[in-house]
């Protein structure tokens, strides 16, 4: 009986699975393979080579990409640190303050940016910044990134905090700890896996962002995604595939780390 109900036995299960996996990953795999192409063409295979990777680091456009990558990195680190701090405080308020007026509205407000179409946020931010007279530049990119990273940092942090029973903090208070000590010595260490996970997620979301960045960045300032887009507009060269592959690698490493850290924390419990 149980075997017949197994989803793997449903008709068409395997073909559908393979089709989905193919649609998801075929383009990525093709880009990865062609990044090692020794040809100037992006479609014809000319043998295996690392020349486009060399081109990315030492070629004519390398300076442009290096600056963009550095911008991306600095903004991602700053945005991730800030949004993780804000998300940690938000989660503490949402999950440890008991019931308070506006709690569900607060929850909605924290998570709404996940649902708002990115283009709307982008346009809104651009209009907002110009209305208050901010010149677009590093600061506007950073502020925008902090804002849209908060819900991504919030989710793993809140999930982690939800799994920590309040009795630990009560035990700390019972053992004469001040509220601050109970947070600092008990809740914070127990939440660390969630916080790291949230940080990594926020970092990668910031690093990968294109639409919002493209709207709020000032003239002449590029992050890696906008630099790639700029280069592509002038025709796709194989070096774009090499950069994309590198970016993909960084993303995969960070998302995996985020997942592993989150899981490690759960095992310890």
């Amino acid at each position: 009986m149980a075997k017949k109900l197994d989803i793997r036995r449903f008709p068409g299960f395997l073909p559908v699975t393979y089709l989905c996996l193919f649609l998801l990953y075929a383009p990525l795999i093709i880009v990865m393979i062609y990044s090692f192409n020794d040809s100037n063409s992006i479609t014809n295979w000319g043998g295996l080579s690392l020349r486009w990777y060399v081109d990315v680091f030492w070629g004519v456009e390398s300076e442009k990409f290096k600056t963009a990558a550095m911008n991306s990195l600095l903004i991602a680190v700053a945005a991730a640190i800030t949004s993780t701090s804000i998300a940690t405080m938000a989660a503490t308020a949402m999950l440890r303050a008991g019931k308070f007026r506006g709690k569900s509205i607060g929850f909605a407000l924290i998570n709404l940016p996940l649902m708002v179409p990115e283009i709307v946020t982008a346009v809104a931010l651009l209009i907002f910044f110009s209305m208050i007279g901010f010149t677009t530049g590093y600061l506007t990119i950073l502020l925008a990134h902090i804002v849209f990273c908060i819900p991504f940092a919030y989710l793993p942090i809140a999930a982690r905090m939800q799994s920590i029973e309040e009795v630990y903090e009560q035990a700390a208070l019972d053992l004469y700890a001040s509220r601050l000590d109970a947070f600092r010595l008990i809740l914070l260490p127990l939440m660390t896996p969630g916080i790291i996970s949230g940080f990594l997620l926020a970092f990668i979301i910031s690093l990968d962002d294109f639409i919002i960045t493209n709207f709020v960045k000032g003239a002449g300032i590029e992050t890696l995604p906008t630099a790639i887009f700029g280069a592509v507009k002038q025709g796709i060269k194989p070096n774009i595939m090499a950069i994309s592959t590198l970016l993909l690698l960084v993303s995969v490493v960070f998302v995996t780390l985020s997942y592993l850290v989150g899981r490690m924390g759960q095992n310890k419990k």
């Binding site: 029973e165 009560q170 035990a171 208070l173 019972d174 053992l175 700890a177 001040s178 008990i186 127990l190």
Partner: peptide, 20 residues
């Protein structure tokens, strides 16, 4: 008085030992 100002201590049902 808040719990941290009372000279009483509790053994909790689930023990609540600090896992870290």
């Amino acid at each position: 008085l808040p719990p941290n100002k009372r000279p009483v201590n509790t053994v909790f049902q689930q023990y609540a030992l600090f896992p870290h």
